[in-house]
Design a protein around this nucleic acid. Structure first.
Ligand code: SF4
Ligand code: SF4
Lengths: 136, 136
DNA sequence: CCTTTTAGGAGTAATTTTATCCTATTTTAA
DNA sequence: TTAAAATAGGATAAAATTACTCCTAAAAGG
């Protein structure tokens, strides 16, 4: 029931890119500014790139930038890009994973909680961090 | 971001005890009826016993029964008895676990989500499963 | 072509999850 | 009193996941 370090790091990466002046940054910049192990940050940015959340530019003067407007990237998007689809219990996404699901009285509760959680995580988009005075 | 099998099993155990006619059952009964590995169920019931959610009776004719009214046992109680306090991100319960917390703009979101989640899980108490026609 | 930078796959150590096993200890019924 | 039935608790272990690192290739600019 806890978010992974990898997903937390990914959120930091996107937050960094959404707030940096130039609009783009290298792995090294991001990793250092956000206290993420460099090689791990590189892997995370690759995943975000595959999920079309960031875009990469190779070669000298390259780096990463957001693939779309911060207002159209949510915390949920980033988490699911890293961890795969959110699933608060095995039976929510794949009903066949539990033989007891058809008669289980707890199952609907997990479905409800998952919807609640996803709604809330989707509400927080990265434009909501821009006009505050906090640091990176 | 997923509940463990152990916690899911624990919920099944409490649900079983809250619904069984005699008011008490042995590890064997519970394990078989709820499709839980027998020795694992025993361990889980020990944890629930330590958390004062169930009470044990030793010796022949022994077994487990709920330690209090089902209306006073929530899904959250059971989960926390098994997994320890709910913590959606490392920084929520222990702020010092992340050096970035004092200036982090994401931190408050996790705090909010944790409250939301705990409220919902605490809402579902085991009396709410009793008047439905579903199986165990 | 040389440097800087990302791409991608393989590999690995640590931790957590998901259990099992064995040896008490308690209780009761024969 | 003794055997059977039940929980208590500690040790152990396989499997999966997490949290990374390493290495080589490929692209881009000067
Ligand atoms: S027992 Fe119910 S809640 Fe648990 S995994 Fe199966 S269907 Fe889901
Ligand atoms: S970076 Fe922010 S959200 Fe992530 S662990 Fe640290 S304080 Fe919490």
């Amino acid at each position: 029931m806890q978010i992974t370090r990898e997903a937390d790091y990914a959120i930091r990466c996107v937050l960094h890119l959404s707030r940096c002046k130039e609009g783009s940054a290298t792995v090294g910049d991001i990793a250092e500014a956000q206290s993420i192990p460099r090689t791990f940050a590189a892997k995370i940015l690759q995943k975000l790139s595959k999920a079309k959340i960031v875009k990469s530019v190779r070669g000298i003067k390259g780096g990463f930038r957001l693939a779309r407007d911060p207002a159209r990237i949510s915390i949920l998007d980033v988490i699911e890009a890293i961890q795969g689809p959110l699933n608060v219990n095995i039976c929510v996404l794949d009903r066949q994973s539990c033989e007891r699901q058809p008669t289980c009285m707890v199952h609907p509760i997990w479905v409800e909680i998952q919807i609640l959680l996803k709604e809330r995580l989707a509400y927080y988009t990265f434009d909501k961090f821009n006009d505050k005075k906090g640091s990176l």
